[in-house]
């Protein structure tokens, strides 16, 4: 009986509803936004990479972010097409060169250098170049005679003579024969037409 009375007593008590929520009214709207009494643990502010055992990992991350930042900055700094930029640089170089050439003092120097160059060119052209060309032509002929293969030897000597002429930049003048000038003109026309075709 005493036990039953005990149960009745317990049932008579008001059992709090565990699912019922009570809304607390407050006058301070920032109450839940301030950190008063809600400070985060110090560990939360610690180095985010401290968990990584390898220190190089964090270093790598820093470098990567730095590079990415630089790239973004570079991309933003490009305000004109690359072709315009190259043209602008080219024009700058061209104008500088023209200024240098038209400068009176430098003009004399360039003229003197040109004269000296011509003299050297003449010496090389008519002495060393010709000598080399002749001796190699002779060598080619001798080889072709010895080996009885005329085609290859002659072809080599002709090509070598042409190469020597090209290297020493033989000056076009009336000293050359009409036939030579005609050949040169034909070759020049071929070069021009080839360059026009390539450009097209």
């Amino acid at each position: 009986m005493a036990k039953i009375q005990k149960i009745e007593l317990n049932l008579g008590q008001k059992i709090a509803n565990p699912f019922k929520t009570t809304r607390k009214s407050t006058t301070n709207p920032f109450k839940y936004n301030d950190f008063e009494g809600n400070t985060l643990d110090v560990a939360a502010f610690a180095d985010v990479f401290s968990g990584a055992s390898d220190k190089n990992f964090s270093k790598l991350k820093m470098i990567t972010s730095s590079v990415m930042g630089s790239m973004t900055k570079l991309r933003n700094s490009i305000t004109e097409p690359i072709v315009n930029f190259v043209n602008r640089v080219k024009e700058g170089i061209s104008s500088t060169w023209n200024n240098t050439i038209h400068n009176e003092g430098l003009k004399n120097i360039t003229e003197k250098l040109q004269t000296t160059g011509d003299k050297i060119g003449d010496i090389l052209n008519y002495d060393i170049g010709k000598g080399l060309s002749d001796s190699l032509s002779g060598l080619g002929k001798t080889i072709s005679d010895k080996m009885n293969i005329t085609g290859i030897g002659e072809d080599l000597s002709t090509k070598w003579a042409a190469l020597i002429g090209k290297i020493h930049g033989r000056k076009i003048s009336s000293d050359m024969t009409v036939a030579e000038l005609k050949d040169l003109w034909i070759k020049e026309n071929e070069l021009i037409s080839n360059s026009v075709k390539e450009a097209a």
Partner: peptide
């Protein structure tokens, strides 16, 4: 180069230069 060739041919006394 073409201009130089023409000048050289102009200076030439050879009659064949006119033909070229």
């Amino acid at each position: 180069n073409v201009a130089e060739i023409i000048d050289a041919l102009t200076a030439h006394q050879d009659h064949s230069s006119i033909e070229v």
